[in-house]
C-alpha cells in the first residue's frame, strides 16, 4: 500500500513538513529529511525549487531562489534521494511547479519518483482538468498519488469533483493567500474548517498555509486530519541552521 494511505489510517493528527530542497545548502536535503523523521514528523514534502513560484510568499520564494543559486536541479534532487528509502520510512511527497516536471519529461519524472520511493506529487499549477486529460494515467502507472488543493473560495461542487478525483488526501489551503505564516486564524477560518469537515468527503484533509506554531497546528487539526508547515520551518532553519530541525518540531507538538 502507498505509504501516504497507510499513514492516513493511523489514529492521530498528522504533522507534515515542507522544505525547499537545496536550501540552506545544496547538500542539506538528506540531513534535513533524516532529522525530520527522527523528530517524529509524519510526512514530508520536498520542495523542488522553481524560478517563478506563483503561489508562494516571500519566504519560500527566497529559499527557492537560494536553492537554484546553490545549483539545485531536478536531476540533482533525484540523485540526492537515490537510496533514501534505506533510512527514511515516512511518506515522501515532491512538491513543485509543473514546468520543471514538464521539461524533465512527465513520464521520466514519475518513473524516477517511483524508483526512489516517492509516494505523491503536489503541483499547484497542474489543474484538475489538465491532469485528468493528459497525465493521470502516467501518475497512476508509477504509483504516485496526486494531491489537489482546495481553498475557502472553492465551490462545493468543485470540492466534490476534487474529492472524486483524489485518492489520498486533499490539501486544504487555510485562507485566500500565498504561503507564509500569519499570526493566527480568525473565526471565518474556523467556520471553513468546520464546513469542509461537515461535507464528509471521501478523502481526509490536511491543512496548509499559515500554520506556524502549536496554536495554529491545533486549530488546523481540530476538524481535519493533519497540517502542513512550510514557511515557518524555513524561517527557523534560516535563523538557526540546517541542524536545528528538532528544536522546531518540538515547539509544534
Amino acid at each position: 500500500m502507498n505509504r501516504i494511505k497507510e499513514k492516513l489510517q493511523e489514529d492521530k493528527k498528522l504533522l507534515s513538513l515542507y522544505f525547499t530542497a537545496g536550501y540552506p545548502a545544496i547538500d542539506d536535503t538528506v540531513s534535513i529529511l533524516t532529522q525530520l523523521q527522527e523528530s517524529g514528523v509524519d510526512m514530508l514534502e520536498i520542495g523542488l525549487p522553481f524560478s517563478d513560484p506563483l503561489a508562494d510568499g516571500p519566504t519560500i520564494q527566497e529559499s527557492s531562489t537560494a536553492a537554484l543559486h546553490n545549483g539545485m536541479t531536478t536531476e540533482k534532487l533525484f540523485s540526492q534521494l537515490d537510496g533514501i528509502r534505506e533510512t527514511i520510512h515516512i511518506p515522501l511527497i515532491v512538491m513543485g511547479y509543473f514546468n520543471p516536471m514538464l521539461q524533465y519529461g512527465v513520464e521520466k519524472f514519475c518513473k524516477r519518483c517511483q524508483e526512489i520511493g516517492i509516494d505523491g506529487i503536489i503541483m499547484p499549477d497542474l489543474p484538475l482538468a489538465e491532469y485528468e486529460a493528459e497525465y493521470k494515467e502516467i501518475f497512476e502507472k508509477y504509483g504516485l498519488i496526486n494531491v489537489f488543493l482546495i481553498t475557502p473560495q472553492t465551490s462545493d461542487a468543485r470540492i466534490q469533483q476534487i474529492d472524486a478525483a483524489s485518492d489520498g488526501f486533499i490539501y486544504m489551503v487555510s485562507s485566500a493567500s500565498t504561503t507564509g505564516a500569519k499570526s493566527g486564524f480568525g473565526n471565518s477560518t474556523e467556520d471553513y474548517f468546520k464546513r469542509i469537515a461537515a461535507m464528509n468527503l471521501n478523502n481526509p484533509q490536511i491543512v496548509g498555509f499559515g500554520i506556524s506554531n502549536e496554536e495554529t497546528f491545533k486549530a488546523a487539526t481540530t476538524h481535519q486530519k493533519g497540517a502542513i508547515i512550510g514557511s515557518a520551518f524555513i524561517k527557523h532553519i534560516t535563523k538557526n541552521g540546517a541542524n536545528s530541525v528538532a528544536s522546531f518540531v518540538e515547539t509544534i507538538r
Binding site: 499547484p124 489543474p127 489538465e130 489537489f148 488543493l149 481553498t151 473560495q153 472553492t154 468543485r158
Partner: peptide, 10 residues
Amino acid sequence: GAFIPEMLYP
C-alpha cells in the same frame, strides 16, 4: 490553457 493554482480557479 489555464495552468493555474487552485487559489486562482474561482
